[in-house]
Design a protein around this nucleic acid. Structure first.
Lengths: 345, 345
DNA sequence: TTTAGCACTCTATGCCCTCGAGTGCTAAAA
DNA sequence: TTTTAGCACTCGAGGGCATAGAGTGCTAAA
């Protein structure tokens, strides 16, 4: 679908996004031709826009308005951006300098990282402190309760007990549940979250479902232990025109402020990922009602065996993704170095 | 002026404030009589309202609307409230418990304090970390520049140099300035901020002006050193109806987020005060443009010679002052105890 | 001194209208 | 076949206008 775009269509999609990110206004064909001195007529642009709209990459707010990028459009844009852009050298140096001229103090690093992210991306930023110990899986039980509802009891090496309800696609006997629990307990004995993810290949469908729940629970436990969350630039988001006169922004920022929501968010997204990669969550991805109007760029930093944390920015969907992604990636790299330097080899 | 209110006028003022704080709607006479089953007619209430409006304690948003409290009205209300209300015993215990069951960790205390303040008052909260060392005055110079403009150079015991411009009410010769500088230098040698304030009685008018500037400068230096600022509940403010569809809230919250603004605010208000007292700043008090639509309840905590910090809440002018003040006072007392227990005797 | 009665004021709300940016389509031009 | 000029059409933003209702201030009676 999306891969079959002509070069001209890609150009126009890029220009529409570029323009809309700046102006926050629907982009018209005429407007586009003039602004960029395009070598074609507005009618041609309109025709291309029709294709792009049919492909689902552009939207019309109403019949007689210009186009704005759809969430799908942003995703396509972001996917083609992957890894390409780097923060300007001078900016990199300025930021590095700030970190390295600081004494060794994790709290200061966190605050500085949050501040840098917020200022560079003009969005809200969040940084969680790195935490050295990851929970290790020790034991699990699955208990059939009623129909497809199953209670999972999870014990970690530290002795903490976690409970969670799981709804299966179809009823399963207690015998089968015990079998699954034993199988996973045997395989996953002593595993940290990273290792758990690697087990998926050895399991059947039902077991994979259970494993994902375990990963989420342990991830949440890790996030909890991570403790401190550093926020900055919340007011940047409020300054965006799309949020004047609605409480969409408040609801999104509340996710950052409330531990429980944030833990859920982090557990389900970035904790599933490896360190290094940058993850982009556009418009809540249909899952998070409160995040429908915003996008989040997240990355993990640190060193898996040693200590890891999460950082990212939150802004309107109409976000300058290039800059946001490169900033997040750069700061994550920087913090990773600092963590490794100070803790590890 | 305000002291000459009849009991009935005080009652009506209280009711109007009580009602307006809840509904955020101008309060009409009829409405008030019905809601509180008053033993008088709406016409009587209207007559009293006219008096209160003439006294400047109530306002009419427009000719044919109900009344809302003026800032003066809130001030009167708050002044008559001083010290009276206490947080319910059960609430006090709940909060204390949370603090005392925590291990000794200042950062955790700060976060918990910010969280408690935000939740109890449903406003934004701020807490600055206690810092043990206060700057000590060492030396000062006053240099006449042009007309009534005077440059003050201030040296603290640590060797930091602070400069600040001072505008005098009338021109003063360099000779007199030097005399003032010498006098203050002599008296204030080695003094911390608290001791400086005690010197006011020994000084003449001009010298008091200069001293206040010194106190502010040193206070700002202290605030700077204090470093960490903990915020919570910023989104609570955004949920207030008076802020939907304007960026007044954003501008006020920005004051909390931006170090420089916050330092200015704290230096000029609460740092002038003694530990223990709660200070209420209503509608920016005509000084802070960005705070025109909000009120702030602040207190210092800690022990003057040992370590002090600042905490408070920020909400709409239409704030439940009783609850806010008692919460701030209680948490300040609690943190003071913790600081004294852990650092001092 | 209090209260009923009443004319008056002003906002909020809904409706209608116009204006204009932008569209989609068609037919001609390249 | 592709591009473009031309044109009728659509729809939201925004201004003007009338209406409804809450609340006032004043006057005169209780």
């Amino acid at each position: 679908m999306s891969h079959e775009l002509t070069d001209r269509q890609k150009l126009i999609l890029n220009l529409v996004i570029h323009e809309y990110v700046q102006t926050a206004q629907p982009v018209g064909s005429q407007n586009l031709v003039e602004r960029f001195s395009l070598d074609m007529s507005s009618a041609t642009v309109r025709n291309e826009m029709v294709s792009l709209t049919e492909s689902g990459l552009l939207r019309q707010p109403h019949t007689s308005a210009g186009r704005i990028p759809s969430e799908e459009g942003y995703r396509y844009f972001v996917s083609r951006l992957a890894g390409s852009a780097e923060l300007p050298q001078t900016t990199q140096r300025t930021i590095s300098h700030q970190f390295y001229q600081m004494r060794y103090d994790v709290e200061q690093w966190m605050r500085l990282a949050a501040s840098v992210l917020a200022h560079q991306s003009r969005s809200a930023s969040l940084v969680t402190a790195p935490h050295p110990e990851q929970a290790r899986f020790k034991h699990m039980e699955l208990i059939s309760t009623r129909g497809r509802q199953v209670l999972m009891v999870l014990v970690t090496a530290g002795g903490e007990i976690h409970q969670s309800m799981l709804t299966l696609p179809e009823p399963v006997t207690q015998g089968r549940l015990s079998q699954v629990a034993n199988h996973i307990t045997e395989l996953a004995q002593g595993c940290q979250i990273e290792a758990l993810k690697g087990l998926r290949a050895k399991l059947d469908a039902l077991e994979v479902d259970v494993l994902d729940l375990i990963v989420r629970e342990i991830g949440q436990a890790d996030a909890l232990k991570a403790g401190e969350v550093y926020l900055d630039g919340l007011t940047n988001v409020l300054a965006e025109p799309e949020f004047s006169g609605s409480d969409e922004a408040r609801r999104a920022l509340k996710v950052l402020e409330e531990r429980s929501m944030l833990e859920d968010l982090l557990a389900r997204t970035v904790l599933m990922n490896d360190v290094g990669g940058v993850q982009v969550l556009i418009g809540g991805e249909g899952t998070w009602e409160d995040l429908r109007q915003v996008s989040i760029v997240l990355a993990r930093y640190g060193s898996p065996g040693l200590a890891t944390g999460t950082l990212g920015v939150l802004g309107p969907i109409r976000m300058p993704y290039g800059r946001a992604i490169s900033t997040v990636r750069f700061v994550a790299g920087l913090l990773s170095d600092l963590v490794v330097d100070s803790l590890g080899g």
